[in-house]
Amino acid sequence: MASNSALESTIDKILKNTEHDILTNIKTGLDESQQSLDDAIPKLESEYDKIISDGKKEADKIEKQITGSSDIEVRNKQLMVLEEAVDKVFSVALDQIANADRSGDYSNLIKTLIEEATKILGTSDISIFTNAKDKDAVQSALSQFSGAELLSETIDCLGGIKVKSKDGAMTFDNTIDARIERLKPLIRKEIAAKFGVGN
């Protein structure tokens, strides 16, 4: 029986050692996994922060895209509407100018236009073109410009004159159409201001 008790004591010892080893291993494993978890927390937090910040960036980007393109679309439509309105004002104004009364100060205007043209061309040896409505006014002003002649050929314009030097080298367009065309950007601005756009 003595051998049995020695055997049992050996078995107990082995069991205790094994139990201790297992418990130690479990504790080490627990510590290691605790450590891994602790280590993972900052990584996880930084990963979490990165995902949130990337998400915010993406959301900002999309928001900018949506608001940007809708702003542009609205602005473009506004521009088209404004342009349409400006064009309407222009066409009404041009109609009124074309049908304006040719009496009174109109002959003075024609005289000024011829004076301006001779000054710019540097010669009074000129041929003048005008439309059918202004022929009389131009003809009566010609007496004050020696060397100037009115051509029978008429031009299509709202009013005013087109002047050519007699050698044909220089032309100066002083019709009302040309003057309006030159001032068109400023007139557009004035009309737009009436609609409450711009300064």
């Binding site: 301006e116 220089m170 032309t171 367009d173 002083n174 040309a178 003057r179 030159r182 001032l183």
Partner: peptide, 28 residues
């Protein structure tokens, strides 16, 4: 910006590459 326009010249002396030489021009 003024309503006064410029003078149009019709004597072109030469066209060379991207350049145009205009003759009898005053006050350019």
């Amino acid at each position: 910006m003024t309503a006064e326009g410029g003078v149009q010249y019709s004597k072109i002396a030469e066209i060379k590459g991207p350049l145009v030489v205009v003759d009898d021009v005053e006050n350019a």
